[in-house]
Design a binder for these strands. Structure first.
Lengths: 360, 360
DNA sequence: ATGAAAGCGCTAACAA
DNA sequence: TTGTTAGCGCTTTCAT
């Protein structure tokens, strides 16, 4: 661990190039309206000295930080249990990097942390925030609104309503994906199609349940309520739910699980019970967590969402909404991704696709 | 996405409290040497106005940022495939938060990114860096050394040698953990104990292999070289290796896999081959990635490392080495964790423990 | 097209 | 103990 040395300033570069600080500043920041010969001299001096602008000094006057906070609430939760989190972060990081913004990571675990994060965001240390807050009772969204920081949410936040206030968010098409999955089971000839829900205090779980109901109502004239079992996105929860299901409806012939982890648990119980998958019971998951979905026995058919793209999109959306026309470099807010869709409540929805493996 | 409003300054607080800026500054920063009555007035004014210090202005004069970069090289790799990454980040975040430092996340994916990160670190935007760089040919460590930024590495970096230069790093006891695992297999009466290595361009894989060899030399008078198969920390790699192993040494009765993912693959091949685990072949993994280890069939016996603690420790080590006596709040550099050990080359090694489940 | 000069909001001598 | 003052390194009018 070495000590950092003092670095050259604008002043030094100016002296070396034989110009004023103002000129150097112009060159360093895009440099319009500077004679090319001078600009070249400046660039040379910058290179010679290894000059790097002092971001603190710059922020002090511009009030911009070129930094964005990524807030992840309750890392215990699902977000942390799977590569979801990492992939999303990767997408965000790529986009921010492409626009020379830094990523400040804020992980929260409880009450005190909420206050801390709120204070930080309100403190104007970053230009905006990307927020993942899954649970219904999370106070964070409210605090963030109060902090008046430009924000994009990851996943449809609670309280967003069609035609509503227009909170910015990015989500995958949970409802549509669920519909595709269930319709696929129906197309396979299954008539007793069950759904093991996710944690219903998360909008993704609610939306997937809605998608399931859509198809059941449409195609089968409404679902037997006994075919819906509440669970929590975990393998253990999936096991429990599947057992209950088998108990209640031994004739079940199709299962749409709220996510791959749940499907994993269900699969295990199905095997224990002597049922063959997919012959006796077809199973579909959600997420396409590849390491899980490919390793189940048999490999899991599931609904894929492009998680990294969601992250990228969140960042792009945030940057494009910030003053200074950032984020216009590649892609714009209007057409964030070739196939993204605008939701009526101001969100952006990414499509899902069914990945057929062996369970359905 | 709302616009941020202009926030109160020290000046405003000073005016309201009827004191000078200097006094407010003193109160805000610990406030020794200020009459209590005045201090109280200041605190009131701060609260009334909702004053939050402008970090940019502060950094400009103090040359401190209270921010630490976390650099993760090649997020494709193992780090991203499992919760490892998330847990470590959590540990880091907790420790940094406890000392009011921010976490700036830098993800890199290739050549250009290296330069970018190097520039950022050299730019003096952060007080230090926590670096994860797994691979032998990674240019990052060199660039970082050149940037002269206080740094702590996650995992023993390449080129660190006993009695060597003293790069700061935190790692788990890979070699000792491997010894424990192999010794356990031997104690179980296994004599044909194989090792499926990890990617040998990572020190963790090398150290685990060394641990395996230690015990084999000690107890069995040296390993049959045929019992060591190179692999890459992935389930597919584990399968491949196990097949090769079965081919070469059908009499193998124990397998120490370099990590849980590898063990997962090995388990699958073992089952296919009709071998019973642990009766015919006992298997031990490494890492204790709980979601994986608990879900294998049968549940995996493995070597546990406290990943979150490693992260916490890295942060603590870095902060305690920084000027300004940060990081002395809870725990110190000398005794970072109750059971951490100093390595001869300047690293800190955390202990591992064997978690017995059903495979050995 | 270029330079001079005035701060951005804060801390840290130094005086009082 | 408190206040005054001089910058930290940069951007940005405003002159030239």
């Amino acid at each position: 661990m070495t000590e950092a040395v003092s670095r050259p300033t604008l002043e030094a570069v100016a002296a070396r190039a034989g110009v004023s600080r103002a000129t150097v500043s112009r060159v360093v920041n895009g440099g319009d309206g500077v004679r090319e010969s001078l600009a070249e001299r400046v660039r040379q001096a910058v290179a010679d000295l290894g000059y790097v602008p002092n971001q603190a000094a710059r922020s002090l006057v511009t009030r911009r930080h070129d930094a964005v906070a990524v807030v992840i609430a309750e890392p215990e939760s699902r977000v942390f249990a799977d590569p979801f989190f990492a992939l999303q972060l990767r997408g965000i990081s790529k986009e921010l990097t492409a626009h020379d913004n830094q990523l400040v990571l804020l992980l929260t675990e409880g009450r005190d942390d909420h206050a801390r994060v709120a204070r930080y965001l309100a403190g104007g240390h970053v230009d905006g925030a990307l927020v993942f807050s899954l649970h219904l009772d999370d106070p964070l969204p409210g605090l963030i609104r109060a902090a008046a920081v430009p924000t994009v949410f990851g996943g449809r936040p609670h309280g967003s309503a069609p035609g509503g206030a227009g909170v910015a968010y990015v989500d995958c098409d949970n409802r549509g994906g669920a519909r595709t999955a269930v319709r696929h089971l129906v197309d396979l000839g299954r008539r007793r199609v069950a759904h093991i829900t996710g944690a219903l205090d998360q909008t993704s779980a609610v939306d997937r349940l809605d998608g399931y109901r859509d198809v059941m109502a449409d195609v089968l004239g409404g679902a037997d309520p006994g075919l819906v079992v509440q669970s929590d996105f975990t393998p253990a929860g999936g096991e429990r739910a599947m057992r209950e299901l088998l108990d209640r409806c031994p004739d079940v012939d199709g299962v749409f699980a709220a996510n791959d982890l749940t499907a994993l648990g269900a699969l295990r119980v199905l095997r224990e019970s002597g049922r063959r998958v997919p012959q006796d019971v077809a199973v579909i998951g959600f997420d396409d967590m590849v390491p899980v979905a490919e390793q189940t026995d048999p490999p899991l058919t599931t609904v894929r969402q492009d998680i990294e793209e969601m992250g990228r999109l969140m960042a792009r959306l945030l940057l494009s909404g910030l003053p200074g026309g950032r984020g216009r470099g590649r892609g714009t807010a209007r057409t964030p991704a070739p196939d993204a869709r605008a939701a009526p409540d101001g969100g952006v929805i990414l499509p899902t696709t069914l990945v057929r493996r062996a369970t359905a």
